[in-house]
C-alpha cells in the first residue's frame, strides 16, 4: 500500500519535473544571454576611458577568466576581469578594467546584496554624475597596491560600510595581481609587441603570401 502511494507521488513529481524541463529549454538560453550581455556591457563601460573597442577572452591555467582589450587599431590597451570579494552579507562582484601597467581604468559593481543604505552606497550615483562616487576614486591608481585607508592605503572607505569597501578594494587588487601573473605566462613570442590573435594571424598569413614567388 505504502509502495503504491510512494509510486504515485513519484509519478506526480516526474510529471511536474517534465513540465519544468520544457519551460527550462525556453528560459535557460534567455538567462544565459542576459548574463553575457550584461558582462559585455560592463566590460565596455569600464574600458571606455581608454578607447577600447574589442575584447578577446583568455583562460589562464588555474581557470582565471580575463579579457585582453584592444583599440580599433588592434593595439593591446589593457585587461578586464571579474573581481570577487566576500562582503558583509554577500559576495560582491566587480568588473575591473586595468591598463597594461595595471593601473585601474574603470570599475563596475555587477552584483552585491549588502546592507541597504550602507554597503549599497557602493553603487550610489550622485545627482548629475554617471558613475558611483565610491568607485570614481579608484581611477588611475595602481591596482596591485590598492587598500583602504584603514589598511594603510589611500582608498576612502564608505562610512559605516568598511567591510563592503574592503571587499571591493581587496578583490580588485587581488584580481589585478592574478591577471598580471597570468599575462606574464602568456604564450607571446619574445620581441614581438602584443597583438590581438586575429591581427597576428592576418599579418602571419600576409607575410607568408608575400614570400611566395
Amino acid at each position: 500500500m505504502i509502495l503504491r502511494l510512494g509510486l504515485l507521488l513519484m509519478l506526480i513529481a516526474a510529471l511536474a519535473s517534465g513540465g519544468l524541463a520544457l519551460l527550462n529549454t525556453q528560459t535557460a538560453p534567455v538567462i544565459a544571454e542576459n548574463k553575457a550581455r550584461e558582462q559585455e556591457q560592463a566590460r565596455t563601460e569600464v574600458m571606455r576611458s581608454l578607447g577600447v573597442t574589442r575584447f578577446e577572452k583568455r583562460v589562464a591555467d588555474d581557470g582565471l577568466v580575463y579579457y585582453r582589450a584592444f583599440d580599433e587599431r588592434g593595439v593591446l590597451i589593457g585587461y578586464v576581469t571579474v573581481a570577487r570579494g566576500k562582503g558583509y552579507s554577500s559576495t560582491v562582484e566587480t568588473v575591473a578594467g586595468y591598463d597594461t601597467t595595471f593601473h585601474v581604468a574603470g570599475l563596475k559593481i555587477t552584483f552585491q546584496q549588502e546592507t541597504p543604505g550602507l554597503g549599497t552606497k557602493s553603487q550610489e550615483i550622485r545627482k548629475g554624475e554617471t558613475t558611483p562616487w565610491f568607485l570614481q576614486q579608484f581611477a588611475g591608481k595602481d591596482a596591485t597596491t590598492l587598500a583602504v585607508k584603514k589598511d594603510r592605503g589611500d582608498i576612502d572607505a564608505i562610512t559605516g560600510a568598511t567591510i563592503t569597501s574592503r571587499a571591493v578594494t581587496n578583490s580588485v587588487r587581488e584580481a589585478a595581481l592574478k591577471v598580471k601573473d597570468a599575462v606574464a605566462h602568456e604564450p607571446v613570442p619574445i620581441g614581438q609587441p602584443a597583438l590581438s590573435d586575429t591581427l597576428a594571424a592576418e599579418i602571419g598569413s600576409a607575410a607568408s603570401r608575400e614570400e611566395q614567388p
Partner: peptide, 17 residues
Amino acid sequence: VIIAAFVSIVEMVMAAY
C-alpha cells in the same frame, strides 16, 4: 510538489525576463 512546481516556474520566468 504542485506548489514547488509553480514556484519554479516563477523563478525561471523572472530570472529570464
